[in-house]
Design a protein around this nucleic acid. Structure first.
Length: 204
DNA sequence: TCTATGATCGTA
DNA sequence: ACGATCATAGAG
């Protein structure tokens, strides 16, 4: 994987076991990579959102802790993958101490590895390469992530996060697309063409 | 059981 | 601005 850090040296579990806001910021610049057969598909993380446990009205963990979000209450460093709007998957990394119920949602990647595979996964031909993983649903479509990866160990399985270069110029805004929220600025991104561009997106 | 809705995206 | 499309949550 050439200029990238090694797929065989993923972030350790201790990285995820800290406050979800710290982890969300430090994940920027790291690489989310999925090994599919012989090939690697992934990119540089440029946008994340932090979700707290009970008490964060925007978090799935605030609603039904024994439902789909129960994986959020388990140990850190595992994937929480859910299906929404009848057609999209979204992927998170469980963070914080076990039982806290917090996680980081991956919202956008800058495509780096397996760009041909990303495009073949059903992206509209009008989408430029930079936008192939721009948005939580697009990340999962581009990398081939679905509920089969719910609960997967991000430190050892086929879906991993590997360290990258430290980033500067992190912006913080309110989170996108929530019906219940309290305005906390827990969305983090670094400027660039791969940042998601939904119609409800707050400006910098 | 039944119904409403969503941490979205593509097209108009 | 709207429709797709279905698992989940909340109501009855």
């Amino acid at each position: 994987m050439s200029e990238l850090a090694d797929f065989d040296a993923p972030l350790p579990r201790s990285f995820y076991e800290r406050d979800v806001r710290i982890v969300a910021r430090q994940l920027l610049g790291c690489y989310l990579v999925h090994r599919r057969g012989r090939s690697l598909v992934g990119g540089r993380i440029v946008e994340t959102e932090a979700y707290g446990g009970p008490g964060d009205p925007g978090s799935h963990a605030d609603r039904a802790p024994d439902g789909r979000a129960r994986i959020m209450f388990g140990p850190a460093g595992f994937a929480y993958v859910y299906f929404t709007y009848g057609m999209h998957h979204c992927v998170n990394a469980v963070c914080g101490p076990e039982g806290k119920g917090s996680a980081v949602l991956f919202r956008a990647l800058e495509p780096v590895l397996g760009i041909e595979e990303m495009r073949a996964a059903g992206a509209p031909s009008s989408l430029p390469d930079a936008k192939l993983a721009s948005g939580p649903g697009r990340i999962c479509r581009a990398l081939g992530i679905d509920k089969a990866l719910n609960g997967a160990d991000l430190t050892a399985g086929t879906l991993r996060i590997v360290p990258g270069k430290k980033v500067r110029g992190i912006h913080a805004t309110t989170r996108i697309g929530l019906s219940r929220d309290d305005g906390r600025e827990w969305r983090f991104f670094v400027d660039g063409p791969s940042v998601s561009g939904g119609s409800r997106r707050p400006r910098r």
